[in-house]
Design a binder for these strands. Structure first.
Lengths: 349, 349
DNA sequence: CAAATTCTGAGGTGCGCAACTCAAAAACTG
DNA sequence: CAGTTTTTGAGTTGCGCACCTCAGAATTTG
């Protein structure tokens, strides 16, 4: 079963091309691999044969012959909230999957909030790496480190959080302003007909992704839902304790609170605060990132919607982008587009 | 750049395994390929070396050596609504991508509603195909045809619409009851505080996916939103004209209509009907499948939410599942899970 | 027209593996 | 212990390609 039958389907080989073009294998090879020393007329003949036969070099054989392999470094945050833990797991599984493609992933962990530490890792990248993927921090030294790597021909992809001004090859992650707008849209519609105040909690306003989400959220909510008033964001440092405290004081100071948007992590803190105040079912709460915790809160009806990104997709996408860049293969662009997922209780995976 | 360095990373080869195990290459090969004629003691020695070195056969080299290739048939509906057109395009792009993996896709078109025709195609499958993917119809003869193929060792994956009772290898598509529940959830929340009637339009109640969505929709709406009354579904045959007519008469007969759920295609008909009645902004309309048309309706504020599935993901997933099955590779399960996408105006791709 | 230059053909090697043969060695049998 | 069977070693071939050499052919130049 599944045996042989190569000739049946007739994938054209370089030898076929050479025969059809009436040249030798060596010349055909020179043409397809863009080596010089071939007359234009001959090149045209070979290319005609290529397109006539629909010849496409077998990438497996090519990689085998070139005997090349790639090594990538993933730099992930060490202070692990649930989402980052998921991402770490997915990177590990991606490594497994990539090994099969003759590519290898190493992972290094640095403190999320420590831009200097991240920059140091990038600056001291060991030789031998063909690419880097990292959760970037938008900081001058990080940006410089990324540009340096780019200058050295080492592609960098930013993961989850971008540094648009740096010469990174690619950003793998969601459109954060759009995510914020989406949250606002849901918030506004879920609160239809109610007036009141909407609280916002962010991890840190100096995290680019959080700031962008906030921007989008405010934009849509103030413009399209004038019955609702958005409070200034308070910082929870992506930490459950601090977020609990912040939420509790928010609840006390704002009796008219009808909605809560958590831009970052720390959702367990919010759940605890709402429960203590007995308002877990009544306040419309929108959170980010589907994790075991937020999933539970959603199923219980505490969280009303989760805006999320798929860590598995992101890990694989980062790897694919790096690999495709290094080996000159092309990729399917819309396979690498990370969507803004909306999860309600009924469409949970 | 990107050159060589194979040995640096040290992917172990079979030869390494043989040397470490103190056996010949031939014996190592016998063990890893489960050929017999090797003593248990020797097998153990080789396997120890395999795990010690972390040896994993290079699948590219293996496929090259086996010189095997696969051929799959995709059976798609010919009566093309927008979504099916998208799916067709994505299958074509997948074919392109698969060619690189030494696998080939042929596409055949049959009428969506003609179960007999579909069954005939499956029954008369040409030899040489290693697998089939099809938008299935839940019909006895189709089911029998699928089971027959399964008996002949030809894997069948159902695409978009399933036949759970048949021995298909895999279903690539969304959980349709859950999609219906998701639509109901959104409908209920978007209509918070309003009372009235919700109309439902389906392509055909004999299409399994439509019936399932309907079931989920009714279930949630009646149970959780008692202020809303769901009308019996009317059929639009996934056709713009018929759907226009159905919607128009619905609008006339139901002055209290506040929501509209279209389970299938024909959304252009709905848009026209709503516009003619001047109710395009007022009625909450939830539709399925993100296409150029529904996208436009969503941006205009006519459609309030789109429940969708990603045709590109589905096409690639079907191909990956078939390929992995045929070549005995394993796949990443959650990469093959098709999610229920929710699109609002703000999170459109 | 000869010399210099540019092209081209023929051939080889190796990548890691599958699949095979054949002979030799080791392990069992009676 | 001879005879049989099972296990192992050594080797070959080919998959499609990349990359290399070298000699000979075709073309251009002086």
């Amino acid at each position: 079963m599944g045996a042989g039958e190569a000739g049946l389907i007739g994938r054209a080989t370089l030898e076929d091309v050479a025969r059809i073009a009436g040249v030798s294998l060596a010349t055909a090879d020179r043409v397809v691999n863009r080596r010089d020393g071939v007359r234009d007329k001959t090149i045209a003949r070979v290319e005609a044969a290529v397109s006539k036969l629909g010849y496409r070099p077998d990438p497996a054989a090519a990689r085998l012959a070139r005997n090349q392999s790639f090594r990538f470094l993933f730099v992930l945050p060490s202070g692990a909230n649930s989402f980052m833990t998921l991402l770490g797991e997915q990177v590990a599984r991606t490594a497994d999957w990539l090994a099969v493609q003759r590519a290898f992933i190493d992972v290094e962990y640095v403190d999320v909030f420590d831009a200097e530490a991240l920059a140091r890792v990038l600056e001291n990248l060991l030789p031998g790496y063909h690419g880097v993927a990292t959760i970037a921090l938008d900081h001058p030294r990080v940006r410089a480190a990324i540009d340096d790597l780019a200058d050295r021909g080492i592609p960098v992809v930013t993961l989850v959080s971008d540094v648009p001004s740096a010469r990174r090859l690619h950003y793998v992650g969601i459109d954060n302003p759009a995510a914020g707008r989406t949250a606002a849209n849901l918030m506004g519609r879920f609160l239809r007909g109610r007036q009141g105040v909407v609280g916002v909690i962010a991890g840190s306003l100096s995290l680019r992704d959080h700031a962008e989400r906030l921007y989008g959220f405010n934009q849509v909510l103030t413009r399209e839902f004038p019955d609702l008033v958005v409070l200034p964001a308070v910082e929870g440092r992506d930490d459950n304790e601090q977020t609990l405290a912040a939420t509790t004081s928010l609840l006390q100071q704002q009796p008219g609170l009808v909605g809560l948007y958590n831009v970052g992590a720390g959702n367990r803190g919010i759940a605890a605060a709402l429960q203590q105040a007995g308002r877990d079912q009544d306040i419309v709460w929108i959170a980010h990132e589907l994790t075991p915790h937020t999933r539970r809160f959603l199923l219980h009806g505490d969280v009303d919607a989760i805006i999320s990104q798929n860590p598995g997709h992101e890990a694989r996408s980062a790897a694919r982008v790096l690999l495709a860049h290094c080996s000159g293969e092309k990729l399917v662009p819309d396979q690498e587009r990370i969507g803004i997922d909306i999860f309600l209780r009924d469409n949970l995976p």
